[in-house]
Nucleic acid binder design. Structure first.
Length: 116
RNA sequence: CGAGAGAGCCAGGCGAUCGCCGUCCACCGCAAGGUGGAGGGAGGAAAGUCCGAACUCCGCAGGGCAGUGCGCCGGGUAACGCCCGGUCGGGGCAACCCGAAGGACAGUGGCACAGAAAACAUACCGCCGGCCCGCGCCGAAAGGCGCGGGCCUAGUCGCGCGCCACGGGCGCGCGACGGGCAAGGGUGAAAAGGUGCGGUAAGAGCGCACCGCGUCCGUGGCAACACGGGUGGCAGGCAAAACCCCGCACGGAGCAAGGCCAAAUAGGGAGGCGCCAGGCGGCCGCGUAUGCGGCCCGCCUGAUGAGACGGCCCGUCUCAGGCUUCCGGGUAGGCUGCUCGAUCCCGUCAGCGAUGACGGGGCUAGAGGAAUGAUCGUCGUCCGCGCCUGAGCUCGAUGGGCGAAGGCGCGGAACAGAAUUCGGCUUACGGGGCUCUCGGCGG
RNA sequence: CGGGGCGUGGCUCAGUCUGGUAGAGCACUCGGUUCGGGACCGAGGGGUCGUAGGUUCGAAUCCUAUCGCCCCGA
């Protein structure tokens, strides 16, 4: 296990921060989740998760957030970007490796066009 | 063994690694914060948000109306629509369970279709003279039937027929009006209590017996009510989860309540310094008043300064006409409210019980885009599937099907996440044992 | 935390207050009309009234509980 941490400085914690990502960010849709990315303001990547009531009850929404946070925590730092991740219903049945692969490919789709 | 009933219990355990949110201690740092250590971190329903309260702000002399809720009796409680004990009614063979369980002579309205009639008694079909005496017939008797006479009444009218002593009267039949009756028929969810006997012209609680209902008395009980006895009488449909009446309770909003600190920007108030002219308005003082003087707050016009367009002038446009200090409200944001409380555990006592009193011990989540998780190993429980052994049961029987119990392997882990805090209710849901009831089998 | 509305044929809605027959339009099926289709005319089929209890002789309607969807305020 890589010893990555997830302190408050690496999370989006304010409505304005979320709103900025929604307004200025670009979207990438995966099979299990949607990622919105915007240029970050901190030294490292920051994460926010949005799980609406359409996904399920409180237990289901919390589980989705934990899975995404754990995935973000154990992955390597993507640089100074702010990410908002929206889980889809299919995420609840996805296996751990498949989910990580989906997340990584969603992130790659940002990097490739940005190098042009 | 099967079916069922009740009260209560648990909510996977242990270990390792990586994380998250508070608390305490030590160290570093001006601070923000960081490092290390210790210890804590979801529920029985945290859920739905259906009731009741605490707490906070607002309102409030007192009372009433309206509105909402509750509704057998007694008790418990801070309070309740909750709980406990009882009564009555209903369900079940039983253990036991369920019940919005006040009032329909206070009033208003409703009861489709059918039916004569749907709530107040009425009458569509239908049924109907009485008492007494004598004689005859039938019968074992009780009694029944017929004829004649007398008395009472309950009849009137019309038509037809017959008879007589014929301007009238009598009898019979039919019809109309009137009278007695509410048993039977039929409709309906429901129509003056039900069954039986007596009774009658026909009938009827008209009388009687039992049941039902009402009322009075006695006994028991705090009471709801129960039991017993007497008496009178059959009063009176259903529905109040129709409006309503009666009794009782309730001021409103909600932790995004409320309190504290408070950036940037704009605006408000006060003071100091600075500032051209005119007009209008405003304020202050004097004066009976026209008015005069002062303040320089607002608006307008002119002039002034700076800039842009332009090579320059004219011209047009834009900007400036204040600076500074202090104060108060208040947004973002932060802090607080925020977890020691009608608290939890154990024991004793009181009480049938809900519960209460006393004694001892404990501190047990406090987040805020919102923590309590992830991965791995291991043990245990339950469920599903597959394989092996297989008591036994069974069929169309050299074969096949079902299958208790045991072993092995694989997979799965119910409902569900604190959001100010309690007391309840309701709903969702996995598991194990205990007690009780009924049935079957064996001893 | 608090408040409000909706759920009825395949679709959009009446009917609920004031309880007894579930109805309209579009869609569907059949027939007619036309050389054929559309339009039109005629006939017809189709609804556990979200779910579960209760009140009532009788419930889409009244009451209670529950499920789902939508909206609003702080």
């Amino acid at each position: 296990m890589p010893s990555h941490t997830l302190p408050p400085a690496r999370r989006l914690r304010r409505r304005g921060e979320f709103q900025r990502v929604f307004d200025a960010g670009r979207r990438s849709h995966g099979r299990f989740l949607t990622v919105i990315a915007a240029p970050g303001q901190g030294p490292t990547a920051r994460l926010g998760v949005v799980a609406s009531r359409k996904l399920g009850g409180a237990v289901v929404r919390n589980r989705a957030k934990r899975l995404i946070r754990e995935m973000f925590r154990t992955s390597s730092d993507a640089g100074p970007v702010d990410l908002v991740v929206i889980p889809k219903t299919a995420l609840l049945e996805a296996s751990r490796p498949a989910l990580e692969q989906d997340f990584e490919s969603a992130l790659k789709r940002f990097r490739v066009p940005s190098k042009q």
